[in-house]
Nucleic acid binder design. Structure first.
Lengths: 199, 199
DNA sequence: AGGCTATATGAACAAGTGTTCAGATAGAAG
DNA sequence: CTTCTATCTGAACACTTGTTCATATAGCCT
């Protein structure tokens, strides 16, 4: 036996990535063996090494791709007038994008410690670039006088942590629609940073 | 060779727990071997099994103990008059308690998927019990008319997610004191749920 | 001093790990 | 039909894994 009927890198490549994504998310990078990934794809272990040099590269690739897509997608969003409008767009975009990729988001956060130092640095740099978008919005809002945050860097992390929390519980088909969830979180995020109305 | 000089379960037991806590937090449960834990303690692998029946039990024990301590410590806090005062106490307590146990908190969240189903259920039940405290505070506040949250359950999760975010970046000795951090987060949490002042 | 129990060692077990590679077949190119 | 390359198999590699157990010593009790 050797090359199998209908085999093609266009098919096997993505299937390997998908299988790895799902298994890493479900059981963790360290707990998943190359043989399990191969079995999920329906192939022998050796075949995986036509598509990745390493188990480590497989992980890094998934993370890097995810974060690059996040930054790209964010870059294509509108950049409306006014920090408040920009915050609204950011929150809605963030929640929607992340809820559409539960596995990738989970991995990009949970498996950081399983990256080599160089790979870790690369991933962190991408994440930072994304967070900078929100930080800029908050700083602009402060300059406009519409936001009141004592420390924009912390507020950025706090808001993103809050938004990310949605991934731990929301599943489509539940009690709330995606739009309702967006609105609820937007409301809380907005309040957390908004300057107080004169009382 | 056999029993070593000065060996005592009062000493070895805690040291095993501490080593496991640190290693699991740093590298992940699946990535840490029993031999690594033993080496950290300065003992042979077999000795670990005088203190735990399983690698799994070791993990579960760490989580369960942590959550039990969290619930106990919270139970000993005051329960002041007014939901706003209760929220303040909750936030300050939560941040302080969690920042004092970075490793345990990290494990209790990250290693859930490495628990057996029964152990997972037990841990989740404890976590729920803790979250219920905040949910109660929020509901009371709504009843008092001091809070305005469309969905107390979601607001609970959102606020806790926001507070937990502090663990990812705060380290003592940094730019901000623990008290300042508490105040900043309290401010954001309060704003996120407070009823709007009449404009 | 002698006996008892707590606590460790060290070797062994079967199974699973990531990775490599020669060889075989499939499909495309000539 | 032949040749060439892309793709996969199957076996092997040297190690590591969690767990068990017979055995030995340390320290306490009488």
């Amino acid at each position: 036996m050797a090359r199998t009927q209908g085999s093609s890198s266009d098919v096997t490549g993505p299937r390997i990535r998908d299988a790895a994504l799902q298994l890493f998310a479900r059981h963790g990078y360290a707990a998943v063996s190359m043989r399990q990934i191969a079995a999920e794809v329906g192939v022998q272990v050796g075949a995986l090494y036509n598509y990745t040099s390493d188990k480590q590269s497989l992980l890094f690739n998934l993370m890097e791709t995810h974060l690059a897509e996040l930054i790209d997608a964010r870059g294509e969003r509108p950049w409306p007038e006014g920090a408040l409008a920009r915050l609204e767009d950011f929150v809605r975009f963030h929640i929607r994008f992340h809820l559409e990729r539960l596995d990738a988001v989970f991995i990009a956060y949970m498996e950081l410690r399983n990256l080599t130092p160089e790979n870790f640095a690369a991933v962190e740099a991408l994440r930072r670039r994304y967070e900078d978008v929100l930080e800029t919005i908050l700083r602009d809002g402060v300059a406009e006088g519409v936001f009141d945050v004592p420390d924009p860097k912390i507020a950025t992390l706090a808001v993103i942590a809050m938004l990310n929390g949605v991934n731990t519980w929301y599943r489509s088909g539940g009690r709330l629609s995606l739009d309702e969830v967006e609105t609820i979180y937007l409301d809380m995020a907005r309040r957390a940073v908004l300057a107080r109305a004169p009382v």
